[in-house]
């Protein structure tokens, strides 16, 4: 069956969500992954958007994080201060999705600048909600295409914390969240080992180990029990294409 790399990433990210999870949803592929999970194996997924919408049931694809479709039919709307305190800081969020221009060996994310902060080569949008999501959500997932420039050994700027320089470093800061649990790419899935270093734990059936290695900026370790992911099913692709993104904005 034919599918795009966006579809492949979305389907694999959706499968990481558990029924009953409370998810802090981002726009784009995370939004598609959450809505796909809710229509398949996780009907009781509770979706929270950082704009302050809880229990959203979007009936169309939101372009922005504050689309009106998120509000109509939701269970609750609160202020942004409340969504970040009562929900995120208090520990009521199971899953957060993150993205960024760079993700490093220990899952730290850069969404701020390439180069020096005061004199940036490239100025990126900045944290938005991600600094606190990465710290306080119980589990974090990252969806990103697998390219060498996106996977440097060390990020230029730590917008959101992964495991810093190792799992013990993150633990020492006392932040409540467990940190990044998986990075879903178009080649496979990276997960932290006991030291917090991202290693390859699954390969998509369409990808090769060699491809993953040359597209990663550090010497990537491969898990001894590395899996091959199940290709997207016909039903998953149908929901994505017909119900969630019929005009193909993100897929």
């Amino acid at each position: 069956m034919n599918y795009s790399s966006s579809e492949l990433m979305t389907v694999n990210a959706a499968r990481l969500l558990q029924d009953g999870d409370t998810v802090f949803v981002g726009v784009g592929l995370p939004n598609l992954a959450c809505n796909l999970a809710r229509r398949t194996h996780a009907p009781n997924l509770l979706m929270i958007y950082e704009a302050g919408v809880v229990g959203a049931r979007p009936s169309r694809l939101p372009l922005s994080i504050g689309d009106p479709t998120l509000v109509s039919g939701s269970t609750l709307v609160c202020s942004m201060y409340e969504v970040f305190t009562l929900y995120l800081q208090r520990g009521n969020v199971d899953v957060g999705f993150l993205g960024g221009a760079q993700i490093d060996r220990f899952g730290n994310i850069n969404a701020t600048v390439i180069g020096d902060y005061q004199h940036p080569k490239v100025r990126l949008p900045g944290s938005g909600g991600s600094m606190e999501i990465a710290a306080w959500a119980n589990r974090c997932y990252i969806i990103t295409p697998h390219q060498k420039r996106r996977f440097p050994e060390k990020v230029d700027f730590t917008t959101s914390a992964g495991f810093l320089t190792g799992r013990s470093q993150r633990l020492a800061t006392g932040v409540r969240g467990k940190g990044p649990q998986a990075v879903v790419t178009d080649l496979g899935i990276l997960q932290p080992d006991e030291n917090g270093e991202l290693i390859l734990t699954a390969l998509h059936p369409t990808a090769t180990l060699e491809q993953v290695r040359i597209n990663t900026g550090w010497e990537l370790k491969v898990a001894p029990d590395m899996q091959i992911t199940e290709p997207p099913s016909e039903e998953e692709l149908r929901i994505l294409r017909e119900e969630l993104d019929p005009t193909g904005i993100y897929l």
Binding site: M80, F84, G129, E132, A134, V175
Partner: peptide, 27 residues
């Protein structure tokens, strides 16, 4: 700032507080 930092500053301003605390983020 981060979003939370930005709106916390507003929250402090709106509440008449001299500063406002937030938990650490490790970043």
């Amino acid at each position: 700032y981060s979003h939370f930092g930005m709106i916390s500053r507003l929250q402090a301003g709106a509440s008449g507080l001299p500063f406002i605390p937030m938990n650490q983020t490790a970043a």
